[in-house]
Design a protein around this nucleic acid. Structure first.
Length: 542
RNA sequence: GCCGCGGUCGUCUAGCCCGGCCCAGGAUGCGGGCCUUUCGAGCCCGUGACCCGGGUUCAAAUCCCGGCCGCGGCACCA
């Protein structure tokens, strides 16, 4: 610091270091009190608490500035494939885009990339389900597009590129691939634009079958990376056999991902593309389109892979699991998956997901979010809003004695709020306790102190102070006659543990989707309510 | 195998671009304590990391080189 301010002292650095060492040793020899005193009298401007380094001002999660971003001019896009629901890794760019759109008063575009009706067959419901997930996540978008509805645009750009001679129609089929693998190419590459243009029209007219013709972008047939050599921009898909859920068999020539993306990103005036590093090579491919067309490419940012510890994120893995294990899962949104819908069903709040995603940021290295971390954020958020309900899960029944009539328990809905509910308990009433709690002297929360004797709960007083003094365990309880049967599902890896028990009557006031804390058990979300009033809840976390 | 990108506490992250305020900060986890009519929350204390090796420099987590490890890509998928 000193040398930075006084470069002329640099040659004498060694001497300075020695002086500094001596001074430090001297100061360290003095007592702390003495040090403070000297500091305050001789250098008052330096006294006072030193602020802790790196201490963040109250959770102000901020993303780093976007390179080349101008306020009001930023345009971002979230481009999911509607072949399935989105998972937390897919949601990352959506959340990050949303954040940047807010930061720069920019535009966020939602674009469905559904240009492969054969191997990545779009799922019709997914278009809606993805939008629901985004809304739930609080991600806003201002424009919405579906690629399969923009086919003419792709055809037109393809024509222009053929005309410019930066693309050609490979009619060599399998052989075309093999030629490129060897660094050679299909003869049509050398044909004039008119010929290729004509071939393209013949492609469109249905003259070729799958694999018989494809439009390739001219790159370099000897490029060190074979996948970059004259990559395919449009190919034929037999939509009679593989109809597209939106356009049926109307089109047989389909743009590939890289072609559709380049064309759309340009036409939608996207300024910044944020995506995973699996797209790095695609970026390189796409740049050929920009160069040929003379378009200004957007800023590309690639971030690392995201994992959620203990969860399966892969869409294809999830689909496969569901198919191969009929009856094992609760649906697409089974709480054991890493899908947004799954996390929602499990009781994770959208704010928690956003907070965690933003804390991971957009760095290029991989990140594994630990469940403990997500749960902790969620718990902090949930703690303030979740009402407290008494739930007993390894129940034993006891008869209340010695009360001398009836007493009322006052149970607060939340430890930080005054509202309470009353529960009346009289001599002879049966009460359920967790079996492992029922021993010795205990206090039934909000009610009174008892001594557990065989099958009985013998009243010993109402004093909370006494319970504290004798350090009695304070336990939750349920009046048997009013108990509501509850099954709590505890997701653990690919298992789903079932915990059966009873909750107090109050639970019946809470509808599906309520998030509650079962006292001394954990945070749950009400998943369903049976015809008989029995509840099924899912454990989010303890 | 080839190409690309990374490597800071167990995990996430700040710092790295612009070398000294860093014997590396925060969060979470873990251990302990306080508080609390919950085994939740809150508060306090503790634990714990610059992948390795060279080089440049008075000084390197930060710059350079090499190695190791991890991830990604290598489709007429997105």
């Amino acid at each position: 610091m000193l040398l930075g301010d006084h470069p002329e002292l640099r040659p004498k650095a060694r001497t300075i270091v020695n002086i500094a060492r001596k001074v430090i040793a001297e100061v360290n020899n003095l007592s702390l009190e003495r040090q403070k005193a000297i500091l305050e009298t001789e250098y008052p401007h330096l006294a006072g608490e030193t602020p802790k380094r790196g201490a963040k001002k109250e959770e102000e999660l901020k993303l780093p500035p976007l390179p080349n971003a101008v306020k009001g001019k930023v345009r971002l896009r979230f481009a999911p494939n509607p072949d399935f629901l989105i998972h937390i890794g897919n949601a990352r760019p959506a959340i990050v885009n949303d954040e940047y759109a807010k930061m720069y008063r920019g535009v966020h575009i939602l674009r469905f990339e559904d240009t492969d009706p054969r191997t990545k067959r779009p799922m019709k419901e997914a278009y809606t389900l993805i939008k629901e997930d985004l809304k739930w996540l609080g991600v806003k978008w201002h424009e919405e597009y579906i690629q399969s509805l923009r086919m003419e645009l792709f055809y037109n750009i393809a024509r222009i590129m053929l005309e410019k001679g930066c693309a050609y129609v490979d009619t060599c089929g399998e052989e075309g691939k093999e030629l490129l693998a060897k660094g050679s190419y299909c003869k049509t590459r050398d044909e004039p634009p008119e010929t290729n243009l004509e071939l393209f029209e013949r492609m469109l007219s249905g003259e070729f079958g799958e694999g018989e013709a494809a439009v390739r972008i001219k790159t370099d047939p000897k490029h060190p990376n074979p996948s970059l050599r004259d990559w395919v921009a449009l190919r034929i898909i037999d939509t009679e056999r593989y109809p597209h859920p939106l356009t049926g068999s109307k089109y047989i020539v389909w743009p590939t991902y890289n072609f559709a993306v380049s064309v759309d990103d340009h036409h939608m005036k996207v300024t910044h593309v944020l995506r995973g590093k699996e797209h790095q090579l695609n970026t390189e491919k796409q740049l050929y389109v920009y160069r040929c067309m003379g378009w200004e490419p957007p800023v590309f940012i690639h971030f690392g892979r995201l994992k959620l510890e203990g969860f399966i994120l892969s869409k294809s893995r999830i689909k496969e699991l569901i198919e191969k294990n009929p009856g094992k899962f609760l649906g697409y949104d089974d709480p054991r998956f890493g899908l947004i819908a799954s996390l929602r069903r499990r009781g994770v709040l959208p704010e928690a997901i956003r907070e965690v995603i933003l804390s991971v940021g957009i760095k290029p290295n991989d990140a594994t979010i630990s469940w403990a971390n997500l749960a902790s954020v969620n718990r902090r958020l949930l703690d303030r809003r979740a009402d407290r309900i008494m739930f007993v899960w390894e129940p034993s029944r006891f008869i209340v004695k010695g009360v001398g009539g009836c007493i009322h328990a006052e149970i607060p809905y939340h430890p930080e709020r005054p509202e309470k509910r009353a529960i009346k308990v009289c001599d002879g009433d049966r009460v359920l306790l967790n079996t492992f709690d029922a021993k010795g002297r205990i206090r039934l929360m909000g009610l009174a102190n008892f001594e557990v004797k065989e099958e009985e709960l013998v009243f010993t007083g109402r004093s909370l102070e006494e319970a504290r003094r004798l350090s009695m365990p304070i336990v939750q309880w349920v009046k048997e006659s009013e108990g509501i049967p509850v099954t709590v599902l505890e997701p653990e890896g690919l298992e789903l543990k079932k915990v059966e028990g009873y909750a107090e009557k109050e639970l019946s006031k809470y509808p599906i989707d309520s998030r509650l804390q079962f006292i001394r058990y954990g945070f749950v979300r009400v998943d369903s309510i049976g015809d008989g009033g029995e509840y099924t809840a899912i454990l989010a976390h303890r």
